[in-house]
């Protein structure tokens, strides 16, 4: 569930207070999310870009592995697993 506006304001206030009281702690935390719009807000779109890229990379790698497996084994897999086309 998304945070309400009041909750966001409270969290921003807490974040500001923590940053004022303990700048070193705030600096360490910023390494994890300093570029976000708010202290605990939704991630910026660019933050999610690496996630999308790694998802695409994994999907493409999966297809490449499957093609490589098919080429290595010739027609054998289809004969070993006829249940694939029996389903359902």
């Amino acid at each position: 569930m998304a945070l309400s506006r009041a909750e966001r304001r409270t969290l921003d206030e807490i974040a500001r207070r923590v940053a004022a009281e303990d700048p070193e702690y705030a600096r360490r935390l910023s390494a994890f999310g300093g570029h976000e719009a708010g202290a605990l807000g939704l991630p910026a779109r660019r933050s999610l870009l690496p996630v999308v890229l790694v998802g695409v990379l994994l999907a493409v790698s999966f297809a490449a592995f499957a093609v490589a497996t098919a080429r290595r084994d010739g027609g054998e897999p289809a004969r070993r697993a006829p249940h694939v086309l029996l389903r359902p």
Binding site: T69, A70, R71, D73, P77, A81, R87
Partner: peptide, 16 residues
Amino acid sequence: SENTFNTILLFASFTT
């Protein structure tokens, strides 16, 4: 590529 198709589709018998 029928053979590659059959190989890729193998994943479905596990994910079932």
